[in-house]
Design a protein around this nucleic acid. Structure first.
Lengths: 159, 159
DNA sequence: AACACGAGACGTCCCTAGACGTCCCTTAGT
DNA sequence: ACTAAGGGACGTCTAGGGACGTCTCGTGTT
């Protein structure tokens, strides 16, 4: 449409769009606009804000990730990498599973013991039933627990 | 707790709770409080309203269903059966799948033709991407269509 | 010809919410 | 003993929303 490209336009067209975008984002990270541990705006949000294609956004983000400024976690987003604190890149269900696993391995929960119910964990973690169940599913796959309908879930005992 | 059961209490205790509840609901249906085609309040909602156990609610509802007053559809609820119009007991994704299937079988969409995209159908049916995809999945299972990533979905051609 | 972009499809996974279905156990009334 | 009710737990399915991943194609710049 614009037959007379000016200087400013040139910066945002052609081969340098993603580089320019990366620079803008880099600045926002280092200045704390995007604080460490938090997620950047989603790819879609960035395409809307900067009026560029998703391809381009992804190119820019890939650069930032290569520099170690961010880490990307599917389904969560891009998390700003803090100075030394390694960002928490795990999912809710993994967190729940991890805590339960620890209680089992430390012996707080012995073989045959009844685990907290889905409802209880929902309440504890303010998570949906699906998420709680996914945590349980992980532990079940690992062979740590067994489920008995109508009764509850139990720490596996070596029968 | 109540050591001196009165007449009124007797109606709502012992063996007649579900019968009484069924009667109340029957009345609401016939008087149009629960209009035909609509869903009754969920089991949980009824347990809350009438202060009875889910067991009891289910017993009452089972009676109403046996009388043909309602039909139950998992994930949807209990639909009031209209006079003669058979209630629509299908899911959104089945509706979408059905309409696409018809367009294929009637030849509106010929072998090899491109089907509407997920986004298009989302917009058309005001459904979530998941629901649209589930419709497609059904058609794919039936062997009516094939999907090609990056391109779209096509009416299957006998290669 | 190579590359960057724009644009748009489909693929996969996470999370939330809500129905009904099934199973188990205890208590109370017959 | 039997049954109704109360109260829980887990099982399965539908539906909505959102993030990143991958692939395809056209266009314009270099």
């Amino acid at each position: 449409m614009h037959t007379a490209p000016e200087r400013r336009k040139a910066w945002l067209t052609g081969q340098r769009v993603s580089g320019k975008l990366a620079e803008r984002l880099r600045e926002r990270i280092t200045t704390g606009v995007y604080p460490a541990g938090q997620a950047l705006p989603s790819e879609i949000a960035l395409t809307a804000e900067f009026r560029v294609a998703r391809n381009t956004v992804r190119r820019a983000l890939r650069a930032l990730e290569a520099e170690g400024l961010i880490v990307t976690v599917p389904s969560k987003g891009r998390l700003v990498q803090g100075a030394d604190a390694p960002v928490d890149a795990s999912y809710r269900y993994q967190l729940i599973a991890r805590e339960l696993r620890r209680r089992i391995e430390r012996g707080d929960l012995g073989a045959g013991d009844l685990l907290p119910s889905e409802a209880e964990l929902r309440w504890l973690y303010e998570a949906s039933r699906n998420t709680v169940r996914q945590a349980f599913a992980e532990l079940e796959r690992e062979g740590l627990i067994v489920s008995r309908q109508g009764k509850g879930r139990f720490v596996r005992s070596d029968e």
